[in-house]
Amino acid sequence: MTPSWETLNAYVDGELDAEAAAEVAAAVASDPDIAAQVATLTRLKASAAASLPVVPQIMPPLPVLRRSRRSRPVTRIALAAASLLLVVGLGVAVLLSVWPARDETPAALLAAAGLHRTWISGPAGAAMRPSPVATATTLTEIPDLTAAGLTLSHVMPASVAGQGRSILLGFRGPRGCQVSLWIGEALPDFAAVPVRQQIDGLSAYVWRVEHKGYALMTRDMDAQRFVTLASAVARITRERFQVDDLTRMALQQSADPALPCPA
């Protein structure tokens, strides 16, 4: 009996049981027409498999959720959770808050948060006075965030007694965004990937690279932008402050012109 077209398809796909497959194999062996059909199907299947559309090696940046009337309401947590997927290859920031209470937050980070608040509460465009010493000792450790539209505004010493030396870098964007990067000694709670924290009312991501600790903090930046930025900055710190193409793409993605920081 001549196998049907469907059966030949299933044969090529390896979906027939042993008995049915043997019947088709016998038909292929005895009938050149059936053999030709199987050959055609095999070639078509191989060509289809080879027709993979080109997909970026990293997850394509997810667009900001459109705020159309048809959009489902989503929480900021959900928004941030989805934004975790922006930066595969950069290391994924984690949505956790391990220091929910102010008195559990390391003093060094509280001090850094205080400095950041002082800075952002000043007049627009103001920069805190950079410390020449801090600048001189950290010039090799200032990440280049220009691809994100953020330029260095100041470098401040932010050391706290008993917790080693630390500095705070202030970055400012063209539309009012201000973020600070704290660099100091890593504390035992610091993870290798950026972990979201609330530090004295500021949004922050905290991570470590070997013995160094980092905390990126902001008050007003959109959550989705901030997680992208944090993941990119974390990659920069892991890559010895080199900005490769992957990181530059993420930085550019974080510079969403539709989401200026509120005044």
Partner: peptide, 10 residues
Amino acid sequence: MQQTALNALT
């Protein structure tokens, strides 16, 4: 993909 991620994660 964005909606898929949201649905999966929420």
